[in-house]
Amino acid sequence: MLWKEKYMVGVPQIDQQHEELFSRVTAFVETLRSDKPWEQKLEKVSETLEFMKGYVVTHFADEEAYQAAIGYPHYQEHQKIHQKMVAYVVAVSDEYEKEGFKEELMQQFGGKLIAWLINHVLADDQKIAEYARSKGAN
């Protein structure tokens, strides 16, 4: 399981969505890393990839709406980070379909995804929560 208590930012709505996102990424990575032949993992990998594509966009939009509501000063900078990640997820997903559902690409995607996600929550999202606390909002 990827989720750790230290990833909580202290904003209930964001934390709840982060836990869901980490839970889905965990399911994705566990499937990816299981000993089964790739052909037997394809369906589950495709299913979780599709979910994440949708959920990442929903979560980022909700998080950005929260930032706007509290007047977070680095809103645009944070939005650019989100946009870059969404573009990466869509590009990988397109390449995955175009190239015939190859395992190598998904393994690369999984590795980058966990490091990016953990850093984004601990470095970037914590700053939103710190700002919210300083303004007495949550």
Binding site: L2, E30, R33, Q107, Q108, G111, I114, A115, W116, I118
Partner: peptide
Amino acid sequence: IMSGMEFKEIDEFVKSALGEIANI
């Protein structure tokens, strides 16, 4: 440490995770 899973060899997943850390 990041994934909570055991890794025995340097494969594409591991290289990509490490590349992202270097990027960060």
